[in-house]
């Protein structure tokens, strides 16, 4: 049986008077990588940022409709935002490690969600496991005290993924995680995403058609705030059912 990871019903979002999401209804399957593609400004980032409700940082944002993540209604009154963000991790377009040491970046989630001090063996275990999880351990095991913001971008971005792992999130949101990286680094991060597949439900925004094909199981095409098409990735690329999807992916191969 396929478990539901994320389900939205008639999700609408306004920035002031501008409607950025129009009645988005989606079902994203658990344990898979789902790609989110579409032209610039179509609302991919906006949609992604609804799932951990980080959109609410921006003044004037209004949301309507429902989002269920593993059966919990995220917008229900009384939802614990902190708990939600523990279960839903986010990787941003620009790598944004905190201006702390590598180890402290990894431990940040545990410190924020835990109560009291972390035992030294917990600390060591968590740092090692998380860094191994993203393939940074051998590179960084001797540099755990380095400021994370001084690392090369690729390592920064991997660290931004690593710091989510100790909290054992159920859903990982990635907003163009490779757009700041060079091709070699991009391909290594893609490998990482493939490895994380299965353990986590991953939703990844990308501008890169080839990347969407390489990493995603399913793909969603959005246009002007609406979902146009949502199918298995190979079907969507080989045999799009909507005229507009076809034009978009062709245009991109141009």
């Amino acid at each position: 049986m396929d478990r539901q990871g994320v389900r939205t019903r008639d999700l609408c979002l306004w920035y002031g008077s501008f409607q950025a999401l129009k009645s988005v209804s989606l079902t994203i399957r658990h344990g898979q990588v789902t790609g989110l593609i579409g032209p610039s400004g179509c609302g991919k980032t906006t949609l992604l940022r609804c799932f951990n409700r980080i959109n609410e940082r921006i003044a004037g944002v209004r949301t309507q409709g429902t989002i269920e993540i593993l059966g919990h209604d995220v917008y229900a009154p009384g939802t614990d935002l902190i708990e939600l963000r523990k279960r839903v991790g986010m990787v941003f377009q620009r790598p944004n490690p905190l201006p702390l040491s590598v180890a402290e970046n990894v431990l940040f989630g545990l410190r924020v969600h835990g109560s009291g001090r972390l035992a030294p063996d917990v600390v060591e275990g968590a740092v090692e496991a998380a860094l191994k999880g993203v393939g940074l351990w051998s590179d960084l095991k001797d540099r755990l005290r380095t400021r994370a913001t001084d690392l090369p971008l690729e390592q920064q971005q991997k660290l931004c993924i690593a710091r989510l792992l100790p909290l054992k999130p159920e859903l990982l949101l990635m907003d163009e995680p490779c757009s700041a990286l060079d091709p070699a680094a991009t391909s290594r991060v893609e490998n990482l995403i493939r490895e994380l597949r299965g353990t986590y439900t991953i939703l990844i925004v990308t501008h890169n058609m080839a990347q969407a094909r390489r990493v995603s199981d399913e793909c969603i095409y959005m246009l002007l705030g609406e979902v146009i098409e949502h199918r298995r990735t190979e079907d969507l690329f080989i045999n799009p059912s909507d005229e507009r999807t076809a034009r978009y992916i062709e245009g991109r191969y141009g």
Partner: peptide, 25 residues
């Protein structure tokens, strides 16, 4: 602001952001 956003996205409260991120930064 990206630091605040990163920390909040990991579930830090505003006070935790101040204490753990802003004051050191």
């Amino acid at each position: 602001d990206t630091y605040r956003e990163a920390a909040e996205a990991m579930g830090a409260t505003r006070w935790q952001v101040v204490r753990r991120v802003l004051l050191p930064a």
